[in-house]
């Protein structure tokens, strides 16, 4: 787990939220280190969005405490949130105004936004998200991807110390997803902590340094990605001489799929030398790591959007 002396951008203790009879968030202790890229994962309806809304002072907690950037929330909302950029459950804008007018209004609405620098900040933010040439067309004529980019621009407007993003690549094409990932990495290298909620495992795996997983309101995993993706103790070998390899590795074989074999071995280099010495041609060879998907599937149940009462879909693993 996390070392306790690391300064935290987000820290919650026993954070809970009850909606009537339903405990949507149940005693969550988030610890998001300053400077991290934190991936917040969980099935639909697991309490991700409610947690995120509590961090931003939109929803009031039923129990527990929240500190964001070292200050209590929602008590210090005015000074905390001025340093936070957020994208919550999709972008929103006034449809009859153009993107720039929307950014101007939002910027002028709150604290920490000097008017003197507004135009330059808006230009910079629009350029960063690739909307600088969009002109004066109203937002209602934007595509989903453009709205998403505008939402990101709004989050970036005041060079926030912390970005809280809910599904930031929603509606973007592969090129756009790549651009957003590069942008977030660049901001993170510049010192911005990133808290990203998603159900796209690949997105989190490609971007994040730390991962938290919620399931039915409880935080079931919270660790560094590198630690979660530990070695399985197997080495995967691709070879056209699978039969010869099998004979050689008798007893150490874990699994085989055509000309790909899983071997129990601690040292891939020694295994490789052994195989080659025995005349087995090795096409590729790597130490196997647990995928994030394995980690998440092992600790979560299915999402609340799955209504069927029967068994799980055939072929899916658990």
């Amino acid at each position: 787990m996390m070392a306790p002396d690391v300064t935290l951008a987000i820290a919650t203790t026993g954070l809970s939220k009850r909606f009537g009879a339903v405990l949507a968030v149940d005693a969550v202790d988030l610890a998001v280190p300053t400077g991290a890229r934190y991936g917040f994962l969980g099935p639909n309806g697991s309490g991700k969005t409610t947690t995120l809304r509590m961090l931003l002072g939109l929803v009031f907690a039923s129990g527990g405490s929240i500190e964001v950037l070292g200050q209590p929330m929602p008590r210090q909302a005015r000074s905390v949130l001025a340093q936070v950029g957020a994208l919550v459950e999709g972008p929103a804008a006034y449809g009859h105004l153009c993107g720039r007018a929307n950014l101007e209004l939002m910027d002028a609405a709150g604290p920490g936004a000097p008017r003197r620098t507004r135009r330059a900040r808006i230009d910079a933010a629009l350029e960063r998200v690739g909307l600088d040439a969009v002109g004066r067309r109203p937002v209602k004529a934007y595509s989903l991807g453009m709205r998403q980019r505008l939402g990101l621009a709004a989050a970036l407007l005041r060079a926030p110390r912390l970005l809280i993003l809910d599904e930031p690549t929603n509606g973007l094409d592969p090129q756009g997803i790549h651009e957003v990932r590069e942008l977030l990495l660049e901001l993170n290298y510049g010192g911005t902590t990133i808290f990203l909620s998603s159900h796209l495992l690949a997105e989190v795996e490609a971007l994040c340094t730390t991962v938290g997983v919620v399931d039915r309101g409880r935080l079931v995993v919270q660790d560094e990605l590198a630690a979660l993706r530990r070695l399985t103790g197997n080495v995967v070998v691709g070879t056209p001489d699978a039969e010869r390899a099998l004979a050689l590795l008798d007893g150490r074989l874990a699994h085989r799929e055509a000309d790909r074999i899983w071997v129990q071995a601690d040292d891939p280099a020694r295994l490789n030398a052994e195989l080659v010495a025995a005349g087995v041609r090795v096409a590729d060879l790597r130490a196997e790591r647990r995928s994030l998907e394995d980690v998440v599937l092992a600790v979560t149940t299915h999402g609340s959007d799955r209504i069927a009462g029967g068994t799980r879909i055939a072929g899916s693993t658990r």
């Binding site: 939109l58 949130l81 929103a92």
Partner: peptide, 14 residues
Amino acid sequence: SAGTLRYLVCRPVG
């Protein structure tokens, strides 16, 4: 209903 309320409140506007 436009979704802008959540952005105003976490902008933050008291």
